[in-house]
Design a protein around this nucleic acid. Sequence first.
DNA 1: ATTCTTAATGTAACCGGTTACATTTTGGAG
DNA 2: CTCCAAAATGTAACCGGTTACATTAAGAAT
Lengths: 338, 338
Amino acid sequence: MLTIRDIAKKAEVSVATISRFLHPETKHFVHPETREQIEKIIHKYHYIPNQAAQALSKQTTNNIGMVTAFSTDVVKSPYYEGLIAGIIEGIRPFTHDLKWIMIKDEEIQNCNPKELLQKHAVDGVVFLTWRLYPKLIHEIEHHSNLPVVLINDYESTIRSSIVYCDGGNGVQEVCKHFVQKGYKTIGMLRGPEYISLDAQKRFKAFKRAARTLGFRVDPKFLFECQRFDETDGYQAMKTWIENQKLPRAIFCANDDIARGAMHALQEKNISIPDQIAVAGFDDSIRSESLNPSLTSVRQPLEAMGRAAVQALINMITKKAKSPIQIRFEPELIVRQST
Amino acid sequence: MLTIRDIAKKAEVSVATISRFLHPETKHFVHPETREQIEKIIHKYHYIPNQAAQALSKQTTNNIGMVTAFSTDVVKSPYYEGLIAGIIEGIRPFTHDLKWIMIKDEEIQNCNPKELLQKHAVDGVVFLTWRLYPKLIHEIEHHSNLPVVLINDYESTIRSSIVYCDGGNGVQEVCKHFVQKGYKTIGMLRGPEYISLDAQKRFKAFKRAARTLGFRVDPKFLFECQRFDETDGYQAMKTWIENQKLPRAIFCANDDIARGAMHALQEKNISIPDQIAVAGFDDSIRSESLNPSLTSVRQPLEAMGRAAVQALINMITKKAKSPIQIRFEPELIVRQST
DNA sequence: ATTCTTAATGTAACCGGTTACATTTTGGAG
DNA sequence: CTCCAAAATGTAACCGGTTACATTAAGAAT
């Protein structure tokens, strides 16, 4: 493996000159002739600077971290799918490498940000939280100066940037749509609120919508799923069907729950949307291809992922002096299911 | 930031002793009392060794790379979804970090393995190829000694380990199933064969199945989709419907294509499976929740991802002396669509 | 008490870059 | 021709670990 000293010798200049050549952005001048000479040698020997050495001396890693829980569920969720796709897209123009940092459950509790992040060698991180990490974020903000971007988690932070989508508006839109269609009884399959801020917010927004639009929230048409997934939606709806208490329309905290609910309804040949209308949240790619296709609220996940990376790199390169908040608006996509 | 020298001073020992303490696996003895003392100091000051410095002096990065094309489509495909989930799971027991290395299209052509991989600082890589990278692999194998594991790509390699699933068997099973059901005319929506080895293999296996099972491959019931996605399946099937040439059963090169095809059929109220049976390939999580649920061939993607990481780390730690090939068998999942 | 072996620790070179500071070169201006 | 500022380059210390080699301490054998 060739080192910078080898190259310096071959090019008949000093190591400093090579280093300067490698970093034109520092504005240290290298004579055009010398430059050409170095260029030739580097190209001839396929010289590539050693990452570790650069990291050590520059005190910077050129890596950014994408933090998720250590669970295979993550990749399987349309929500993360969208965000990750955006992050991939967003990192494209930069030279940074992407490290996927997965936090194990046991680490969430007694977390030390140094142990957690410093050892992973990153210049900054994007948190794709869906568990609540408030303690960890707090620790990072107070005991380190690591640039952090949070996605859809805009509470109690001081120096982290935040990219979020105001889902509340989306919920409002769904309910307005239901009311306009003349559906009187509207139920909700809620998400796991002890775990997810989003789940909490969606339910709050639902109650708010009831107030502003003037429909009643009947407790017998409410159910809190333990997970954001299909099985839970299926089970919940099955129970309702058996107990013969069905609303005219149902808003599900996400598409997976909605899909499960539809499944249960179709098993009993209950027609969607003629007997009951169903709407989801997230507009995962699959919503469109369901039969009937699913009305849903779209968060611009890819755009959000892109924005997060952009914001993070601005923080790392000090282009941004202070943390920012970027807000995205959701969009109601009306399809056959309502 | 505390360095090993700071800690050495505080613990009143030399840096070497600290380093030995940090690496018990080297079997260099540290006196129990000293050990205790060091332990206390490290814990008190939350000392964490600097990654870059370790990497530089150990000549090893503690990172493994997951190589994919630089495209957001990757995360959105159930195929990669499964593999990635397996990789995440597989890396769990180890301390290695996971770097997601994305190769841009323009780099695929005139690729230099050093420029591509050395600069990303990894100890080994898993290739989740779906474009053909034969030249790159060849270069890596000949001009570096980087440990490599390939997934579902078992041709022309010399020192890479390979994890693959013999999809051919799965195709055979699908066709056998069709024949047993008494379906005489069997068509296929093929995948993009100029791009994907798998697409090529699935079509070959289809032709082989026709021979061994004794059904005819009618060119008018064949179509090569340009991408492994829903839109292509939809378009292809729509065209067939318009031209009134439909087989009794159709095998699709993957689930996305199948989903698109089903969509087109349902639009025209053609009953599945009564008028036409549809089978897919991959058994993505969504296949089950389609209506009707989709018969499909399951590759044990997660297990494959896990195996790949395991194999790679064995290569890195020299536990494996020579490259290995791990073969998985696909499984036919029969559902409503056939 | 002396010698030998092994355990425990210390010293300093090394990994391969970056960069502060020093030095030499270059091209006007006076 | 001299002087000076700016450009170009060189020297060597430094980043924070690891480890070969040297040294000291401890315990056993003679």
